[in-house]
Nucleic acid binder design. Structure first.
Length: 476
RNA sequence: GACCCCAUCGUCUAUCGGUUAGGACUCCAGAUUUUCAUUCUGGCAAGAGGGGUUCAAUUCCCCUUGGGGUCGCCA
């Protein structure tokens, strides 16, 4: 058996779709698992949809996520170029070869003609397809019109009364009648190939063994098989993944909300969580394990455990999983990922020791990292005391608590967390007051709110100086 | 409309003929916590319907229903 070669073949439309990410992930994991090669190929055959910088974006996003390709742009593996726009002559050559063999033909029908044809077919109890009129043109007429410079495309000529049968790795046997298949355009009037031709030609020349793609391609697979066979090639294995669905159960798309991986990344979803979560949409490892790394996925991945049914992308569980990662990944790493949000909020995080403590405490309160500053703010922003709380804070009892702490804290500069814990528990004994009378003024003075982190941790993070400053601000 | 694919808690899923149908998210309750968050414990919640095959069907087959995909000179 030959070595596995798989490809991820996005079209550069500006961002990495969550569904594409999952496909890329399965490609990557499968290649790693099998000791195969993962190829990145850019399908930029639609000149009308080119988005500037999107290829760089895509490559950056994949790199950020840790999904490395073995061959592709900037990584020549001897099968390049990896941009379809740079392989045009190859597609044309095979399109002409197909014409020669009688498997394709020139078509001169205008857009208007085609629109009208479709309109006439609406309501018919049939599949809508091209009626094949140009396939019946005489050779002489074709030559004449070509010479005359008439705009034209090349269409595949699908045989009648035949059936295309193939075995999908996930779905098993699929059988489709050739009469249902349209004479699909393979070369557009601008000379560019359509997806169908380009993908088939490239898959062949790049020696792709397994085509892993979304289920939306299932019904056009016969066209691809037809092209492979007409060209005398052996088709690859087909692996059609279940679709990623929006909450309305339809194919996940931009208009249902965020589908760009980049936007999840910038909102503060960790790559570990995104990958873990997306992987689970359609696949699951043995047992009840739900949190796993890319490495673990590689060792356990198997198409036999990929589902057939589409999966709804429910962000609620992603939030939970992201929270799990925020809390369990190394503190320095989380601090690193959070930095940008703190800077955006304008917090002075030059004191790295304090910053780490803040992150360590705050990470318990968020499931999306961009929101970490909501909680962390209390450690960086001086509290505003509400008018309604002032009476309580200036009461003799409250003042006693605050001055108790100011007095003790002033003794030295460096308090350990244990010492602070001891101080706090000793304080409530020595002052002989109830919990509420004790903690309420401290919380209010510290944050302007009645709740907050436990006091020893709070004082440890804030530091002696800042703590005293906050207390003194409301002491008479 | 035609064709193709699919069908277990609200959601992601386990089960590859015999289970009290398991786990996770969400939600609810309790414990821990001065409070909040975290964490822990417990609870609610599912085999679309109808036929077969079988000693036995969620599991295999068929039909119905439901959902999705495709039907572009887009991928």
């Amino acid at each position: 058996m030959s070595k596995i070669r798989v490809r991820f073949a996005p079209s550069p439309t500006g961002y990495l779709h969550l569904g594409s990410l999952r496909t890329a992930l399965y490609d990557y994991v499968y290649a790693r698992k099998m000791g195969g090669t993962f190829v990145l190929r850019i399908e930029d055959t639609d000149q009308t949809r080119l988005v500037e910088d999107s290829v760089d974006n895509l490559i950056t996003s994949l790199a950020t996520l840790g999904i490395d390709y073995d061959e592709g742009p900037h990584k020549d593996g001897g099968f390049g170029p990896y941009f379809q726009s740079q392989r045009l002559p190859l597609y044309m050559k095979h399109a002409l070869e197909l014409i020669e063999k009688g498997h394709a033909y020139h078509c001169f029908c205008s857009k208007e003609t085609l629109d009208q044809m479709r309109e006439e077919q609406v309501g018919t109890h049939n599949n809508m397809k091209y009626d094949g009129r140009c396939s019946r043109l005489s050779k002489d007429e074709v030559t004449a019109r070509l010479l005359n410079g008439e705009p034209h495309v090349i269409r595949m000529k699908v045989p009648k009364h035949q059936s295309f049968v193939f075995d999908d790795i996930i779905r098993g046997r699929v059988d489709i009648e050739s009469d249902l298949i349209d004479d699909q355009v393979i070369i557009k009037s601008d000379g560019f190939p359509t997806y169908h031709l380009a993908a088939v030609v490239d898959d062949h020349y790049m020696e792709i063994t397994d085509v892993i793609r979304g289920e939306e391609w299932l019904s056009s697979t016969p066209k691809h098989i037809f092209l492979h066979e007409s060209l005398g090639w052996t088709p690859p294995h087909w692996v059609h993944l279940p679709l990623l669905l929006g909450t309305d159960r339809s194919k996940m798309s931009k208009r249902q909300g965020d589908v760009a991986v980049e936007s999840y990344l910038s909102k503060g979803y960790l790559k570990e969580a995104i990958i873990n979560f997306v992987a689970l949409l359609g696949w699951h490892p043995a047992g009840d394990k739900e949190i796993f790394s890319l490495e673990e996925m590689i060792s356990e991945f198997d198409f036999a455990h990929v589902n057939k049914a589409g999966a709804i992308f429910d962000v609620t569980k992603l939030d939970w999983m992201n929270g799990q990662y925020i809390r369990s990944l190394p503190l320095e790493y989380i601090a690193d990922c959070s930095r940008t949000y703190f800077l955006e909020a304008g917090f002075d995080i030059s004191d790295h020791g304090k910053y780490l403590k803040v992150v360590d405490k705050s990470r318990n309160y968020v499931s999306i990292l961009s929101l970490i500053t909501d909680y962390a703010a209390k450690f960086y922003i001086f509290p505003k005391i509400k008018e309604t709380d002032k009476d309580f804070l200036t009461s003799a009892s409250s003042q006693k608590v605050l001055s108790y702490f100011c007095d003790r804290l002033r003794i030295k500069y460096n308090w350990t967390k244990d010492e602070l814990a001891e101080l706090v528990s000793k304080g409530i004994e020595e002052l002989e007051i109830k919990g509420k009378q004790y903690y309420q003024p401290l919380n209010l003075a510290l944050w302007g709110e009645t709740s907050g982190p436990d006091i020893p941790t709070a004082l440890d993070i804030l530091g002696t100086e800042e703590t005293i400053k906050r207390f003194q601000a409301i002491m008479k």
